[in-house]
Amino acid sequence: MNLILQGLNTDRNAIDSIAALAGAERIAPIHANAWRCEGVQHFAEIKAKVDAECLAAQLDGTFIDGARKLSDFKLVAMDMDSTLITIECIDEIADMQGLKPQVAEITEAAMRGEIEFRESLTRRVALLKGLDASALQRVYDERLKLSPGAEKMLAAVQAAGLKTLLVSGGFTYFTDRMKTRLSLDYTHSNVLEIEDGKLTGRVVGGIVDADEKKNTVERVCAELGISPLQAIVMGDGANDLKMMGISGLSVAFRAKPVVRAQADVALNFVGLDGVLTLFA
């Protein structure tokens, strides 16, 4: 096993200390702020100590089989809100209605797994009833930003021949634009109902919840003729856990504690391109 340590700024003393804690045989630099600790011990007790030390040093630490390569994978599946992009679109739409605190509170509870996603989405969308649909474009133009490292990560995986899937409990208005902007292969999300230029407070068709996200990953894998174990799946909220659970590598990006605890990889400090460093 290797232990990959990376951060926005790294202190070599902290690297050496954590590597020693993991019983590393060698330490090799990957780039200025990333190190590969080779031949480490991987036991639950050691991992818990390493995780605590990494958090204190603002480092992301990942135990990974040294033989794994990016070419082992054929698909990268991503959540959108707070994963591929920095915002929760529905919270920002609600802000146009003066309802961001109320909607954001429901969003947070759902991402922590305290409210079932389907119920939370129905409640949040209902609060948007009557809002002019032009608010969606304003959110896209004024507030939507890609997460750090997103473009670099996507460029690398696409160059390596991996397919890309954006599967979101958010809305097609935004996933469609992300698909075009980032040359993604597949997208799947919810459709907001609009009548006479205004949001009705309803979603058209089925809701993309945790089960539908998992089903979508399975469906795309079947279409590609691959196993879900050949997919890297990234997310941040409780509704991402089911699709992350069937993947070959699950990545929690700046995620809720319940998600970090169950993921293979937790990136709390570096950008999405930190995934690439695991295979360097």
Score class of each variant (00 low, 15 high):
A150M: 01
R143D: 12
G245L: 13
G23D: 00
P29R: 09
L144K: 07
F279E: 03
T187K: 07
D79M: 06
K152H: 07
N268P: 05
Q6S: 12
F253H: 02
G98P: 03
F73V: 11
I93R: 01
R68S: 08
V50H: 04
K49R: 15
S247D: 00
R254T: 02
A133I: 14
G248H: 01
E45Y: 06
K179Q: 15
D132H: 09
I18K: 11
K213N: 06
E218R: 14
N2T: 10
R124N: 02
S120D: 07
E105W: 00
D273H: 00
D16G: 10
V125F: 04
M78D: 11
D79V: 06
A263D: 08
V125T: 05
E212I: 14
V220G: 02
G201A: 13
R36V: 05
D72L: 04
D240S: 00
L192F: 01
G237F: 09
L5Q: 02
Q158T: 10
G245T: 06
A32L: 05
E88C: 10
P148D: 06
R143F: 15
A110N: 00
A238T: 03
S227H: 05
F63Y: 12
D176T: 04
L55E: 13
A22Q: 00
F174H: 02
Q230F: 08
M234S: 05
K100L: 07
G66E: 12
L21K: 04
V40E: 10
L131F: 10
R118D: 13
P228F: 10
A56R: 14
